[in-house]
Design a protein around this nucleic acid. Structure first.
Length: 794
RNA sequence: GCCGGGGUGGCGGAACGGGUAGACGCGCCCGGCUUAAAACCGGGUGUCCCUUCGGGACGUGGGGGUUCGAGACCCUCCCCCGGCACCA
């Protein structure tokens, strides 16, 4: 017996897998084996800003176990890999260290490919896709044009989030606590013409379809809250002097009779209109411009302020005039930018009314019924909501309405390293799409891609100055590039058909594989990537390009690998998977990262225990070799060890398949190996060894393959051998341990034959001396759980 | 403020439908092998008490409850983590 040498074994099998491309799956010709079971396994693709860290190792090893498990159940498994290769980190690295983003990106990609091969992950490398390659982004541009054509991508001037450090606009999803999610700088609001995807058109679909997918509740909740659907009403408040009706959104139409003033956001275009011609016009305008300029971040911290415009609106319920104020607690971006203020039933309105001495009227009593509300007095508030809206709607002053928190996705970025937006601006024709046959619009070389507030592409005249596709007169290309989240919103579709030069993907092929059966990635993408991709899918479905409406049928979030309490990242360094592979071997690392605990739980990184994993593999190696030296196990051998082996098959299978547990199967195999080492002469020893090797294979594909050969299966390939099936009969026990309790306390444990009647079990219980010692008193009751326990209550 | 997740030995965790708490592993202790160490092998290891063979009490963040029986269910409090947040 040779001693276990991870490096030699791992190199040997990795070389074979690569040479024979064993993890490649081909697309069937249309009509071929339509009944074949297939499975699309995907983990979120890496961002090549450095090499992989232990968080990736966890992510991709999880996917790898599922891949092997499904393959060995006869599924045709698509498990591709690619790179989210456009984006700021590569560009920032290039600016910092010199060099070109392309060079840095491709260098990192190559390092990651090498790491992935060293880990032994079962990836179909023939389908590799990278966002920055023209063969890919050509289709990102093409999809953008389709969206543009159908009004799903549009350009408008709007207040957007500006990161002063990265010198670019950010989507709402990437502003965290008022700061840039990448660099942590406080985000400013700027008015800029920007490109948006009309994700709000799908707000309801994005909410409703959550019911159709198997996702963690937590993630669904994050998306639900982010979309923020509120049911309420739109009510009109008339300003007679100006002959206008101002709409407001409210979720509490039942409190309308208590609306004692009206408030408008400082940024609202109404401010000018209201102030015009009033004696306090100057005061109002300067208040509005001052408070609008305040960073949103501290707006909520301060005491509420406001100024009276001198105008009045009519409360549609009471017919009374109520003063119109401009107030900084009114948000332009929510509802209509104006609100009816009900100080009696809203804390914020109350605070404002106290500050400025405005009337406070209570319209709901302690019993939840309306008061001071004319004909609605006595109506329960919940019923009054509908009743009041209905009453108003008869006069055209209100209607039911739904409001969302979700905003359209702003995706233009004033940076270099991204997908160019295929639009040409013409004085006469406006934003003109680049004709399809001229795609891709290649990202040109530029000398200086440092952020200067102006997009770097703007300073490249050869790129910018092009004729208008419609009239041929001088035009200008769009100089912004796309958010990288556009690239990653459809990459999983390209994997299905990566070489297509006619279309981003063939619908029949994509329909065959989609939706993704199992997606694995970090929960940090809950309201970004995972929402954007769902939007893309729905839009593509509506455009007739794909047959499904949800991209990720089942979703799992791996936990974070923490180093000193912080998430591992590439920049942080510290733990290099390469070094660990070199010292301990990939199989040991794979087991180590999955044995730590449940996969959705965070891991506090510590190298303690890696030694133990290597020790286990060595022990496994030795015990299997010993069993291999012994005789073949008879076909239907029935010994305690054989039963343990069957039980292990059942446990491992159930743990992966039903429970998505990856740590407990390792423990189950360890138990089997422990028993095997204690019973080397058991006739089932060889069978037990084969079982252990076979079910551990998804975790340790290299050493398992090697040991499969040692056990005499050298002509087979374990990675494509059927998953073992436990014999039900062998899972039945003929004796069981009966727990004997008195008053719910365990007093004895005895071995009895399985399947005894209640009376027989009670008889056994009474016969126990240890039970008898505690039976001092009147027996009141006996509880029997068949084949499990007897509890005598005295 | 609103919504949600979690708290089990010295440590990571197991216990899946209310039925043996602590599987498996780390660490530690004892022993074997060895000139020695490493490696490896065997045994022990929740806390406390009965000097013992054996046995007993307590024990899953605190308190209370339901139940023959609670880590699991209910109420309440404490602590940690996440999402949303002047969202009308």
């Amino acid at each position: 017996m040779d001693s276990y040498d991870a490096k030699t074994i791992e190199q040997k099998w990795q070389a074979l897998w690569e040479t024979e491309q064993v993890f490649h799956v081909a697309n069937e010709a249309p009509g071929d084996s339509p009944d074949e079971q297939h499975f699309y396994m995907l983990e979120m693709l890496p961002y090549p800003s450095g090499s992989l860290h232990m968080g990736h190792v966890l992510n991709y090893t999880l996917g790898d176990v599922v891949t092997h498990f499904k393959r060995r159940h006869g599924y045709k498994v698509l498990r591709p890999m690619g790179f989210d290769s456009f984006g700021l980190p590569a560009e920032n690295a290039a600016i910092k260290d010199g060099g070109h983003p392309l060079e840095i990106t491709e260098r990192n990609m190559e390092a990651i490919r090498i790491q992935m091969r060293l880990m032994g992950w079962a990836i179909d490398w023939q389908r590799e896709v990278s966002a920055h390659e023209p063969s890919y982004y050509r289709w990102t541009q093409w999809l953008f044009l389709k969206f543009f054509e159908h009004g799903l991508a549009y350009r408008k001037e709007a207040p957007v989030n500006w990161c002063p450090n990265d010198q670019t606009v950010l989507a709402n999803e990437h502003v965290v606590d008022g700061r840039c999610w990448r660099c942590g700088f406080v985000v400013e609001t700027r008015n800029m013409a920007q490109w948006f995807f009309k994700i709000t058109a799908y707000a309801d679909a994005l909410l409703d379809d959550l019911a159709t997918i198997d996702w963690p509740d937590r993630t669904k909740r994050i998306q639900t809250q982010w979309i923020g659907r509120s049911q309420g009403a739109e009510l009109l408040f008339r300003v007679d002097e100006l002959d206008i009706d101002i709409p407001v959104f409210t979720t509490r139409p039942d409190t309308l009779f208590g609306a004692t003033f009206f408030a408008v956001a400082p940024e609202s275009p109404l401010v000018d209109q209201l102030a015009e011609g009033m004696e306090q016009a100057e005061e109002v305008r300067s208040y509005a411009s001052l408070s609008a300029a305040r960073p949103t971040e501290d707006r909520e911290q301060r005491a509420k302020t406001g100024v009276f415009t001198g105008r009045y609106a009519t409360n549609p319920a009471t017919g009374q005039p109520i003063p119109i104020w401009v107030a900084d607690y009114v948000l332009m971006e929510y509802g209509t930018g104006a609100l009816m203020a009900v100080p009696g039933h809203d804390d914020r309105d109350h605070e404002f009314a106290e500050t400025y001495g405005l009337p406070i009227v209570s319209v709901i009593d302690e019993g939840g019924k309306l008061i001071n509300s004319a004909q609605f007095d006595g109506v329960p508030a919940d019923d009054a909501k509908g009743a009041i809206v209905e009453w108003l709607s008869e006069h055209g002053q209100g209607k039911p309405a739904i409001n969302y928190r979700l905003r359209d996705w702003s995706f233009s970025r004033q940076r270099y390293w991204g997908c160019p937006i295929p639009i040409i601006y013409c004085e006469e024709h406006g934003a003109v799409p680049v004709p399809e046959d001229q795609l891709p619009v290649l990202l040109p070389e530029v000398d200086d891609y440092r952020p200067k507030g102006q997009p770097p592409l703007a300073s490249n005249p050869d790129f910018i100055n092009v004729p208008c596709p419609i009239c041929g007169k001088a035009g200008r290309r769009e100089a912004d590039t796309m958010d990288t989240f556009v690239d990653s919103s459809w990459y999983f579709l390209r994997y299905t058909d990566p070489f297509n030069v006619q279309a981003p993907f063939d619908r029949a092929i994509a329909d065959y594989w989609m939706p993704i059966d199992q997606y694995i990635g970090g929960i940090d993408h809950a309201k970004g990537h995972l929402l954007y991709s769902r939007f893309f899918m729905k839009a593509l479905n509506d455009l007739g390009m794909i047959g499904v409406r949800e991209p990720f049928q089942r979703l799992f979030h791996q936990g974070w690998v923490l180093l000193d309490g912080k998430r591992m990242s590439k920049s942080q360094g510290g733990v290099s998977p390469n070094e660990l592979i070199d010292r301990f071997g990939a199989d040991a690392i794979r087991i180590y990262i999955l044995f730590y605990g449940p996969a959705d739980q965070d891991i506090n990184w510590s190298p303690d225990g890696i030694d133990a994993t290597v020790r286990f593999i060595r022990r496994f190696w030795r015990v299997v070799h010993e069993a291999a030296a012994g005789p073949e196990s008879p076909a239907a051998v029935d010994t305690p060890l054989a039963r343990k082996a069957h039980e292990t098959i059942a446990r491992v299978t159930d743990d992966i398949d039903r429970r998505f547990m990856f740590n407990t199967p390792i423990a189950a195999v360890m138990e089997l190996v422990n028993e095997l080492s204690k019973a080397p002469d058991d006739p089932a020893a060889r069978f037990a060894a084969e079982t252990a090797v076979s079910v551990l294979q998804p975790w340790t594909p290299h050493v398992a393959e090697e040991l499969w050969g040692v056990l005499g299966h050298g002509n087979e390939r374990l990675w494509e051998s059927p998953w073992p099936v436990a014999d039900e009969a062998m899972l039945q026990r003929d004796t069981i341990e009966l727990v004997l309790q008195v008053n719910g306390k365990v007093r004895d444990r005895i071995q009895v034959p399985a399947g005894l009647s209640e009376a027989e079990l009670i008889e056994h219980a009474r016969a126990s001396e240890k039970v008898q010692a505690h039976l001092n008193g009147v027996e009141r009751r006996v509880i029997v759980v068949p084949d499990k326990l007897v509890n005598i209550v005295v």
